[in-house]
Computed example of a mutant assay.
Amino acid sequence: MSRTLLAYSGAALAEIAGCFAFWAWLRLERSAWWIAPGMASLALFAWLLTLVESDAAGRTYAAYGGVYIVASILWLWGIEGHRPDRWDIAGGAICLAGMAVILFGPRGG
């Protein structure tokens, strides 16, 4: 598995977990103590994105968007117990294709 894929996968898990911590606190009425690990997870997310080999931060973040969307669909299924429908899957596939074009497309020299 490439370093980019590992960084993106870890970043997606960290971002979703961090955001879910806030969701749990505010929407699921969990303890405010959920904020601390949520903040740590969001800091890990930001650091992991710096490990992606790219000459521009914006390109790294744009490409990450596709990975984030697919990871969110997997979170929906695995953590929240809602099975993705065909539209979730089709949308995720389109986003991954867009990510690949952004990140791996040939660049003029």
Score class of each variant (00 low, 15 high):
Ile73Met: 09
Leu28Thr: 10
Leu42Gln: 04
Trp47Ala: 13
Arg27Ser: 14
Gly65Phe: 06
Arg27Thr: 09
Tyr64Pro: 03
Pro37Ile: 05
Glu15Ile: 02
Glu15Ser: 00
Tyr68Asp: 15
Ala46Gly: 04
His82Asp: 12
Ala17Glu: 14
Ala43Pro: 11
Ser72His: 02
Val67Met: 13
Glu80Met: 14
Ala36Cys: 05
Trp87Tyr: 11
Trp77Tyr: 13
Asp55Gly: 15
Phe22Ser: 05
Trp25Met: 04
Ala36Tyr: 07
Gly81Ala: 09
Arg83Asn: 13
Leu51Thr: 15
Ile35Trp: 07
Ser9Leu: 14
Arg30Gln: 11
Ala46Thr: 06
Ala57Pro: 04
Arg30Val: 02
Val70Cys: 14
Ala17Phe: 04
Gly18Ser: 06
Val52Lys: 02
Ser54Gly: 13
Trp25Cys: 05
Arg86Thr: 12
Trp47Gly: 02
Gly10Tyr: 06
Trp23Phe: 00
Gly65Trp: 12
Ser41Ala: 06
Asp55Met: 01
Val52Ser: 14
Leu26Gln: 09
Glu53Ser: 10
Leu26Glu: 09
Ala32Lys: 05
Trp47Leu: 07
Asp88Lys: 10
Gly10Pro: 03
Leu76Asp: 04
Ser31Arg: 12
Ser54Trp: 11
Glu15Ala: 02
Trp23Glu: 06
Ile69Met: 15
Ala62Asn: 01
Ala40His: 01
Trp34Ala: 13
Ile79Cys: 07
Ala11Arg: 06
Val70Leu: 10
Trp33Ile: 00
Ala12Gln: 01
Ala57Cys: 11
Ile69Leu: 15
Trp25Phe: 12
Trp77Asp: 08
Ala14Leu: 01
Tyr68Val: 13
Ile69Gln: 12
Met39Gly: 08
Glu80Ile: 10
Arg83Tyr: 10
Glu29Gly: 12
His82Met: 10
Leu42His: 01
Ala71Arg: 09
Leu44Ser: 14
Trp75Leu: 08
Glu15Arg: 00
Leu76Gly: 09
Gly38Thr: 02
Thr50Pro: 07
Tyr61Phe: 14
Cys19Phe: 00
Thr50Lys: 12
Ser9Gly: 12
Ile73Asp: 13
Leu51Trp: 14
Ala11Gly: 08
Trp77Lys: 14
Gly58Gln: 03
Ala32Met: 02
Arg27Ala: 13
Ala63Phe: 05
Glu80Pro: 00
Trp87Thr: 08
Ala32Arg: 06
Pro37Thr: 06
Arg27His: 08
Leu74Arg: 12
Met39Thr: 14
Tyr64Val: 02
Ala46Glu: 11
Trp25His: 03
Leu13Gly: 04
Val67Ile: 12
Ile35Lys: 07
Gly65Pro: 03
Val67Asp: 08
Val67Glu: 15
Ala40Met: 04
Gly65Val: 01
Ala17Leu: 07
Gly65Arg: 06
Trp23Met: 00
Ala63Asp: 06
Glu80Phe: 07
Ala63His: 09
Ala14Trp: 00
Pro84Cys: 08
Arg83Met: 14
Pro84Asn: 10
Leu74Thr: 12
Thr50Ser: 05
Pro84His: 08
Arg59Asn: 03
Met39Ser: 05
Ala57Tyr: 13
Tyr8Thr: 02
Val70Asp: 06
Leu49His: 04
Trp87Gln: 15
Arg30Glu: 11
Leu51Lys: 13
Gly66Ile: 03
Ala14Gly: 01
Val70Lys: 09
Glu53Asn: 08
Trp47Tyr: 10
Ser9Gln: 09
Gly10Gln: 00
Asp55Thr: 00
Asp85Ser: 05
Ala11Tyr: 11
Ala43Trp: 15
